[in-house]
Design a binder for these strands. Structure first.
Lengths: 185, 185
DNA sequence: CGGGAAACTTGTCACTGGCAAGATTGGCAC
DNA sequence: GTGCCAATCTTGCCAGTGACAAGTTTCCCG
């Protein structure tokens, strides 16, 4: 921790991103307020402007960070397709704030270079897992990749949105393990 | 059209919902402004309050309307599972504003009785299609239902979010037809 | 050690959501 | 018909927000 009273915060950009993730986790992305973030971190209401330009700029940075966290999670899950899918679910649940922003167009600048690069890294990680996996229909790799991504993404999105019936249970990763295998026989 | 100058609009609730769908289609749910809706419809800035209470109330009504539109679309698609899935995609693309609100928790009151009822109607419609379909693994009906819903929902969500690579093409329904069958052999 | 740039603050403006109080109108009891 | 009540809509207001402008403090490099 840097000195708490310094005029220069020293790590404000990182602190604001962390505060944003926390605030979104509490009340969702729509309720996010730059002034609230500034208060949480202990700086003036205009400080965030200098680092992110505007609100969309901050969410753009958060989305980029999220895509890199996702790529890392997928790489950590290894080459097993089921485990990679579970990793995707785990990422979305653990980093819910990032995940919600990443796939909410209109909240941030989708064509920002940093976001584009980070998104490319995560899709490459996903693609690598599927390419290596035996037992998957390789006749139409693109359709297979798309289907896999879709099941996993759809499942966790429904989970997070609260649209799923109670019978599914309370453990998203466990539920995902019963759903994902239906894609491969 | 009712008289345009009447003190009583006559159909304000419906007009506001339509304006909301239009506005969200233009700029997304986050940018929605009650005052802007009032201006579009030609009433004062406080008129919406009387019909919906607050902003969440309006979005709650929009979500309920969306779930009913979805149930209708699924019923119209018949009992073929592939066509029902394509119908789901068609609904999301055509009624994008409704769809985005329906699955965005935090924007509206998920436990509202009208929403709950409408959501139950649409899940029932989805369940009916899957139950009737031959060639689907019926050993674990719940997992099958969940997987089907997940692929379709995930695909169209990714599509709408702009996360999919350009190779997927420009016709979401056609792309869905190549993805959905991978669930059944 | 001096000067310029980066980091942060204070001040301000237009806009938003929500509330309160008043004006207008439709419709029902009688 | 007529009177009255409730629903509908308006005007006025307040606190909070995002964005911008201008000023202040601090860092760092030459």
């Amino acid at each position: 921790m840097v000195s708490t009273k310094a005029y220069h915060h020293g790590d404000l950009r990182r602190a604001l991103l962390a505060a944003a993730a926390e605030a979104i986790g509490e009340s969702g992305p729509a309720a996010l307020s730059l002034r609230d973030l500034a208060r949480r971190v202990g700086v003036s209401h205009a400080a965030p402007t200098h680092h992110f330009g505007d609100k969309a700029g901050l969410l753009t940075a958060l989305a980029a960070q999220g895509f890199d966290l996702l790529a890392e999670e997928l790489r950590r899950s290894g080459t097993d397709l089921l485990e990679a899918g579970v990793g995707y679910v785990r990422f979305a649940v653990r980093h819910r704030a990032h995940f919600e922003v990443m796939f909410a167009p209109g909240l941030y600048r989708r064509d920002d270079p940093e976001v584009t690069a980070a998104r490319a890294r995560s899709t490459a990680a996903l693609q690598a897992v599927i390419a290596d996996h035996p037992g998957v229909d390789q006749s139409d790799p693109q359709a297979t990749r798309l289907a896999t991504w879709s099941v996993v993404h759809g499942f966790v999105t429904l989970w997070l949105s609260g649209a799923l019936p109670a019978e599914v249970g309370t453990d998203p990763e466990a539920a995902a393990r019963t759903v994902i295998p239906l894609l491969f026989h």
